[in-house]
Design a protein around this nucleic acid. Structure first.
Lengths: 112, 112
DNA sequence: TTCAACAGTTCCAAATTCCCGAACAACGGG
DNA sequence: CCCGTTGTTCGGGAATTTGGAACTGTTGAA
């Protein structure tokens, strides 16, 4: 398996970030990772709300979040540790993450 | 032609807004409308940057922006006047529009 | 060393969404 | 009316997304 790609801060693109978070499942996953601040295995999200997410889809979702620069994924033994890159995104696009997370908090994405 | 649908402020959904603005063409259109504050005919955007946008695609883009609640479209004679709904969105999701517009200003979407 | 269990990834085909040319509808001016 | 102009709708091909099945890597136990 090839090493996972993580964009640098300078490579962050608003369209990739917005696209990544425009999906309710990904938004829910990211919200959780950002809240916990750190370390969530992918399998933690085998279901979001009451909806079951197949693991191949989960893997894709994590890839999109990762390549948008929103999370960092590192192998830790048999599982993956996903940590939020909020501080880096904040440095590049001030206020963006806070506003998006706040918006979703007002209207939970799980509602569908 | 049936009347155009505009969501009320309470109906605004973060995922729809992020999806609408995750497309560079739509982001460019919306940025322009938001900057001018008002009144832009669809045909104003027959090209974005150096890229030509077919009018059927343009129509779709405007529909997505409209149904996300980002713009209001009203027929004015033969053309359409599109005005930004930023103040309403701001009331519902404080800071969101400003942060997104600022992010795109740092990394112009036309760059691709 | 070999094996089983587990976490994720990759592959690929079906479903969905997106794109854009062509036809259509609505309005205003001669 | 009949045009010219503006924008919407329709339909089929392109691109993206989805998810089951097979595969890769890692750990721990026999």
């Amino acid at each position: 398996m090839r090493p996972l790609f993580h964009p640098s801060v300078e490579e962050l693109r608003p369209e990739a970030i917005l696209h990544a978070l425009s999906d309710p499942v990904r938004a829910a996953i990211f919200t959780d990772i950002a809240r916990e601040g750190c370390v969530q295995a992918c399998s933690t999200f085998a279901s979001v709300g009451d909806r079951v997410i197949p693991k191949s889809s989960l893997s894709q979702h994590f890839k999109i979040l990762r390549e948008a620069g929103l999370i960092r994924s590192e192998r830790q033994g048999v599982e993956m540790r996903n940590t939020s890159r909020c501080p880096e995104v904040e440095a590049r696009f001030p206020g963006l993450m806070a506003a998006i997370l706040a918006a979703y908090q007002l209207v939970p994405p799980a509602t569908r």
